[in-house]
Simulated scan of single mutants.
Amino acid sequence: MSDDFDFECLDAERRFALFNLSGAIALHEGVARVAKVIAAATARGYHGLVVDIRGIAGFEPPGVGARHEMVRTWAAVAGPRLRLVMVTRPEFIDPERFAMVAARNFGLVANVFETRAEALYWLRSESLLDP
């Protein structure tokens, strides 16, 4: 697997990283790209990953079925220690957070927010739960 991902360190002590994904992209391509980013972050030993997709274009907010498949794909590569946070535009956030519930059912601790500050706050709060 190519390891050409430019991660920005958000918290060196807790091993949190940021990855930006932007530009015109089809939904299935975006899901696959995020899966590769998750795999690379896991391989590098990160415990928290923020993926900022506010700059993407090319598709409408996904439906329930697509969200379910998306988090199943990501959970399969995340491993048990990685927490994932997506930062996206408000129209892409399901008010009922269906995908986040599904992600936990697949073993992935994940959340979604509109800002990086909210994402980092949540990651730091979640890391306090580590044994």
Rank of each mutant, 00 (worst) to 15 (best):
131 P>D: 05
61 P>H: 02
117 A>G: 01
120 L>D: 00
43 A>L: 02
68 H>V: 10
78 A>S: 15
70 M>R: 05
48 G>Q: 05
48 G>R: 02
80 P>K: 14
76 A>S: 07
17 A>S: 13
36 K>Y: 15
49 L>A: 12
78 A>C: 13
110 A>M: 15
104 R>A: 03
116 R>I: 10
54 R>K: 03
115 T>Q: 04
105 N>H: 07
17 A>Y: 06
130 D>R: 08
22 S>M: 04
87 V>S: 04
64 V>G: 13
95 P>S: 08
15 R>T: 07
95 P>A: 07
97 R>N: 12
6 D>H: 07
55 G>L: 06
128 L>R: 15
42 T>I: 11
76 A>D: 03
43 A>Y: 01
80 P>Q: 15
120 L>A: 00
50 V>C: 10
104 R>Q: 06
73 T>V: 13
54 R>C: 00
39 A>W: 11
85 V>C: 01
9 C>Q: 14
104 R>G: 02
95 P>M: 07
116 R>N: 13
39 A>V: 12
122 W>G: 06
28 H>M: 10
91 E>W: 04
120 L>V: 09
3 D>R: 09
114 E>L: 08
65 G>Q: 13
43 A>P: 00
15 R>E: 11
86 M>K: 08
78 A>R: 11
63 G>R: 12
12 A>L: 08
108 L>G: 00
22 S>K: 04
1 M>K: 12
91 E>T: 04
7 F>S: 12
94 D>E: 05
121 Y>T: 07
56 I>M: 08
100 M>Y: 09
50 V>F: 08
111 N>K: 02
75 A>N: 06
59 F>D: 01
47 H>K: 10
77 V>A: 13
28 H>R: 08
23 G>V: 11
18 L>C: 00
39 A>P: 10
113 F>K: 06
35 A>H: 09
57 A>G: 08
67 R>V: 03
17 A>M: 09
25 I>D: 04
121 Y>W: 06
67 R>H: 03
7 F>G: 11
52 D>K: 05
19 F>R: 14
117 A>K: 02
80 P>S: 15
82 L>Q: 05
91 E>H: 04
47 H>P: 02
13 E>T: 12
54 R>A: 01
68 H>M: 08
7 F>W: 13
100 M>I: 13
12 A>E: 14
115 T>Y: 05
123 L>E: 00
82 L>G: 03
73 T>P: 05
121 Y>N: 06
51 V>A: 00
31 V>A: 07
97 R>D: 13
44 R>I: 03
13 E>N: 10
65 G>T: 13
8 E>W: 06
105 N>R: 07
5 F>R: 02
54 R>I: 01
121 Y>P: 00
16 F>C: 01
121 Y>K: 06
103 A>N: 01
48 G>L: 06
105 N>F: 09
56 I>V: 15
89 R>I: 05
96 E>H: 14
56 I>H: 04
30 G>S: 15
46 Y>P: 02
88 T>W: 00
41 A>C: 00
82 L>P: 05
81 R>Y: 05
